Computed example of a mutant assay.
Amino acid sequence: MNNIDASAHYEVEATGQTPSLLTLIIDTNPRAWAALDGSLPFSKAVANILVFVNAHLAFGNDNQVAILAAHSNRAVWLYPPPPGRHARHGSSSGGDRDGDVEMAGANGQNGDSARQGAASSANKYPQFASIEASIVSSLRSLVSETAASSLPATTLVAGALTTALAYIHKTSLAYAPPKQSSDPANPTTAATVTATQTPTLHARILAISVSDSEPAQYIATMNAVFAASHARIPIDTLSLSPHASPTFLQQAAFITGGAYLSCAANPSGLLSYLMFGFLPDAEARTHLVTPSQDSIDFRAACFCHRKVIDTGFVCSICLSIFCEVPEGSECLTCGTKLALGKYGAKPVVVVRKKKKKKRINGLTGREETGSATGTPAPT
């Protein structure tokens, strides 16, 4: 047939859209939200976040979302809810015949309430209603279990980042292509294994922060950030509070190639920042102009007193950071004897000798020019 119409025919394979996984970390520190209640109540913020999540899921049928709460002392799954406590130790009493277990919320209850909430609204898309019911139920349980007497002022961001990376890795394994064994006798098989493969899942992390970065979590946070950078998972950060600055999350956005925005000047515009700044995934951002950071806070936390410092001392062996010289000039991490050289010595000030001016014919002239003529005086 090609010889008759003299045209080339090609078989085009239909390729589907690459799934996109959005892992959302919400800072639920009660003290920070209480300071922000006048401009952005927590209930309104959750409503705006739900609209953003629904918009992400509406972009593609294969898009997924996972939501974590970074609380004061722990990281809690909001969606999908974690398995029930009865499923531990391999117990199958609460599961189905095939080994599946019932999903539970933050309080350990099963997912019956979430399903009832999703079925109660006939005007909502079932998946949207299920996510909304799960988030609201888990947040209510989280607030009810939080005691004001034992409430720390910190936020466990490092634990939430580590949990999010573990979930992304587990989800990516489900989308990974099957491994093919390389056979030396068959060169085509080896070529197939070494060929470049397109990514099967676009994953990213979005952290909504309302509190300061905790210096005690500096090491754990940086470990999670470098792991995300190695896995090519961008970490986006949106800062809401004008009273706090997430220093470490700002560095995380820069290191992993994510976006950092601050709506501290207008927290009520949370939905606009989410929709226009963080809705495109990693693939779509290659065709767009993403928000950039004007200034980046690269300050680190010292290993001795756990405080953010501008200048300090770094061990040349283990790269530990100290705000002051350790006792005995010995590294507190690896025990290496540090050589400080002449640190602390006063600089030597050399007095410059004044050059004498030559006197020629009783007049003072400049030695540099060699002129014997002085400055003319008025007559």
Results as ranks from 00 to 15, higher is better:
15 T>P: 01
16 G>S: 13
20 S>D: 12
20 S>Q: 08
24 L>G: 04
25 I>S: 00
25 I>W: 00
25 I>D: 01
26 I>F: 01
26 I>L: 09
30 P>L: 03
30 P>K: 02
33 W>A: 08
33 W>F: 08
34 A>R: 13
36 L>E: 01
36 L>S: 00
37 D>Y: 07
39 S>F: 05
39 S>I: 05
40 L>A: 07
43 S>R: 10
44 K>G: 15
45 A>I: 06
45 A>T: 10
46 V>I: 15
46 V>Y: 06
49 I>H: 13
49 I>Y: 09
50 L>Q: 15
50 L>D: 15
51 V>G: 15
51 V>N: 15
52 F>Q: 03
55 A>W: 04
55 A>R: 10
61 N>S: 15
64 Q>T: 09
64 Q>P: 08
65 V>M: 03
67 I>Q: 04
69 A>K: 00
69 A>S: 05
71 H>I: 06
74 R>W: 01
78 L>E: 02
80 P>W: 02
81 P>H: 05
82 P>T: 05
83 P>M: 04
83 P>Q: 09
85 R>S: 08
87 A>I: 02
88 R>G: 10
88 R>A: 13
89 H>A: 14
91 S>V: 07
92 S>N: 13
93 S>V: 11
93 S>C: 09
93 S>P: 03
95 G>K: 07
97 R>W: 07
101 V>L: 07
102 E>V: 14
102 E>N: 12
103 M>T: 10
103 M>L: 14
106 A>D: 05
107 N>I: 02
109 Q>I: 04
110 N>Q: 08
112 D>W: 03
113 S>A: 12
118 A>K: 02
120 S>Q: 04
125 Y>H: 14
125 Y>D: 10
125 Y>F: 14
126 P>N: 09
129 A>Q: 11
132 E>P: 09
134 S>L: 09
134 S>D: 11
134 S>Q: 15
135 I>W: 04
139 L>A: 02
141 S>R: 01
143 V>F: 07
143 V>D: 13
145 E>P: 02
147 A>N: 12
148 A>L: 13
151 L>E: 11
155 T>M: 00
157 V>T: 11
158 A>I: 02
162 T>I: 10
162 T>D: 14
162 T>P: 07
162 T>Q: 12
